[in-house]
Design a protein around this nucleic acid. Structure first.
Length: 302
DNA sequence: AACACCGCCTGAGCGC
DNA sequence: TGCGCTCAGGCGGTGT
């Protein structure tokens, strides 16, 4: 269950290998994980699609990667063609970097839906070791809740990200308070809404509320300014720590090189319903909020 | 307009 | 050992 930390950790690990690299080939094994936005509207009806879209070209074949970016759980790859690829990991998505001479494990390959072949460009930032001059980037997603979206411009990206709330990794108290003031839903539901705050999923919502001592059913717009600041501080701290640890929230999370997270994240409440609170030993309660399992301490989160 | 809820999809974990 | 069941949940679409 990748949340912001997994996405950011992944972005940081692939960025040096992607920036400046040329995409020599793109293999689309499952076209239905690719969404092409905005392009159809620009195509005159007379030219409309007896010819299927050239997905490999749209996904970067023949161009190079200029930069990577992220907002919330969405990662972007800016291409020299002007197209921008949005990578969403969904529940089970990952990116994997490998040498091209490394055989693809059959089981692993089963859910590789898009495979990019990359070559070191003249301005490549990647270290001159390990992967040599050619490498392969795979988007793997067994459950297919994630996907790749092709955007045709910076404007399209700005528009897409403008509907998201502020990025949770750097959200300040005042900004969070403002975002929460717009809804009377339970605070837990608001935190999960990417339009309110971008990047928080079920795990970190519960963990942040626990540390801030806020009950998950409190109305979002009823939080005191001070509580919003405390919550924002805990959100930033939890996420920043998890980014460094390699987004170890997922039991079998692997970074882009297949290495497991360095230190298993210890969760104070997530997945611990019915067990004693680590602070006060009260039995942790478990309820459903916004159709998500929610664990909290009745005593620490009044 | 704001919000609730459905359903997509597969692997892990469990009981029998 | 192995089968079948349940659960997990991000997010877009639809209903209230």
């Amino acid at each position: 269950m990748p949340e912001l930390p997994e996405v950011e950790h992944l972005r940081r690990s692939v960025d040096p290998w992607l920036c400046g690299a040329e995409i020599t080939a793109v293999e689309v094994r499952r076209a239905d994980v690719v969404c092409v936005a905005n392009l159809d509207a620009r195509t005159p009806a007379s030219q409309h699609a007896p010819t299927p879209l050239d997905l490999p070209q749209l996904l970067g074949r023949g161009s190079s990667v200029l930069a990577t970016d992220r907002h919330g759980k969405q990662m972007a790859m800016r291409l020299s063609s002007g197209f921008i690829l949005i990578v969403q990991l969904g529940m089970t998505g990952t990116l994997r970097l490998e040498r091209t001479d490394q055989p693809l494990d059959h089981t692993e390959s089963k859910h590789r839906h898009v495979v990019w072949t990359l070559r070191r460009g003249s301005h490549a930032a990647a270290p001159k070791t390990a992967l040599q001059d050619r490498w392969r980037l795979s988007f793997r997603d067994p459950r297919r809740f994630g996907g790749i979206t092709v955007l045709d411009s910076n404007e399209a990206l700005s528009k897409r990200w403008s509907v998201l709330g502020p990025d949770a990794l750097s959200v300040g108290g005042a900004v969070l308070a403002a975002a929460l003031s717009s809804t009377k839903r339970p605070i837990k539901a608001a935190l999960l809404d990417q339009g309110v705050l971008a990047g928080i999923g079920n795990i970190y919502a519960d963990e942040a509320l626990f540390r801030a001592g806020i009950h998950p059913l409190r109305a979002a717009n009823a939080l005191q300014r001070r509580e919003a600041s405390t919550l924002a501080r805990h959100i930033r701290a939890i996420l920043a720590k998890a980014v460094v640890q390699g987004g170890s929230t997922l039991r079998d999370y692997r970074d882009a090189f297949g290495a497991s997270g360095s230190a298993r994240q210890s969760h104070a409440v997530y997945g611990r319903g019915g067990q004693p609170c680590l602070v006060c030993e009260e039995t942790l309660g478990q309820i459903t909020v916004a159709a998500r399992t929610t664990v909290f301490c009745p005593r620490c989160q009044p």
